Amino acid sequence: MALVRKGSRRISVDGVTYRWTVRRRATYARGLAWRPLAYAVEQDETPGATLLVTTNRPHPSNWLGIPARAVLPAEVATAIRTAQAGGWTPETPGPLFQLDQSDGFTPAG
């Protein structure tokens, strides 16, 4: 799965450039804050396996008005390093690699 360049952000981690993006519109479950915010990351030059990071907070555009904070580049860099330590190889094609950081998320409702 390749990320769309338009709307994605670039980040350099340990000399390698990646692209990351948060889905602009919340899905139904994320809009109701039943599921936490997630974002995708892939290597920029030679995209291989995509990293999907699940956070522990609601989507910023949830429909319930629950306060949410934005994903910061420092958090993305930390997630990239954590995923690589856990076996993610971003330059090698393969299945989606999921990094679950949702500890502490409480679904609404």
Rank of each mutant, 00 (worst) to 15 (best):
E91P: 01
T82Y: 01
R69N: 02
Y28Q: 08
D44H: 14
L96A: 03
T46E: 12
V22W: 08
R23D: 03
Q101G: 12
L3V: 13
N62S: 04
G31W: 00
T27S: 14
I80M: 06
A49Y: 01
A26C: 09
F97P: 07
T17A: 14
D14S: 05
W63D: 08
D14M: 03
P60E: 03
T54R: 15
R25D: 13
A2V: 13
W20E: 08
R81F: 08
A108Y: 08
A85Q: 09
V16G: 00
W34P: 04
G109Y: 08
H59Y: 05
E45V: 13
G48I: 12
D14N: 14
P90R: 00
W63L: 15
A85Y: 03
A108P: 04
D103F: 09
Q98S: 00
P36E: 11
A74M: 08
P73V: 09
A74W: 02
T27A: 01
T21F: 15
A40C: 10
A49C: 11
P90L: 03
P90W: 10
R69I: 04
R35T: 14
I11N: 11
T82I: 06
G15T: 07
R81L: 12
G104N: 03
D14G: 11
I11K: 12
G109E: 08
P67S: 12
R9L: 10
I80S: 01
G109T: 06
W34I: 13
G94T: 13
L52E: 15
M1I: 10
L72C: 09
G48S: 01
P93E: 15
G31P: 13
T21A: 15
R69S: 09
P90G: 01
L51D: 05
I11Y: 12
F105Q: 04
L72S: 07
E45W: 01
F105D: 03
R5Y: 12
V53W: 12
A26S: 15
A49Q: 09
A83Y: 07
N56L: 02
P60M: 04
P90V: 13
Y28E: 10
G104T: 08
V71N: 01
R24G: 01
Y28W: 15
R5H: 14
T21M: 11
V16R: 12
S61M: 14
P60S: 05
A83G: 11
L32A: 13
S12N: 06
I11T: 11
P47Y: 10
S61Q: 03
S61D: 03
L64P: 13
G87F: 11
R23G: 02
R35K: 15
G15S: 10
A83K: 08
R9G: 00
G94I: 09
L64V: 00
I80P: 03
Y18V: 08
T78D: 15
A79Q: 06
A26I: 13
M1D: 05
V13A: 05
S8K: 05
P107F: 03
Q84V: 11
P107W: 06
A29D: 09
R25A: 11
F97H: 01
A70H: 11
F97M: 04
T50W: 04
P58E: 00
L72I: 05
V53G: 13
H59F: 05
P36G: 10
P67G: 02
Y39H: 06
R10T: 10
L52Y: 08
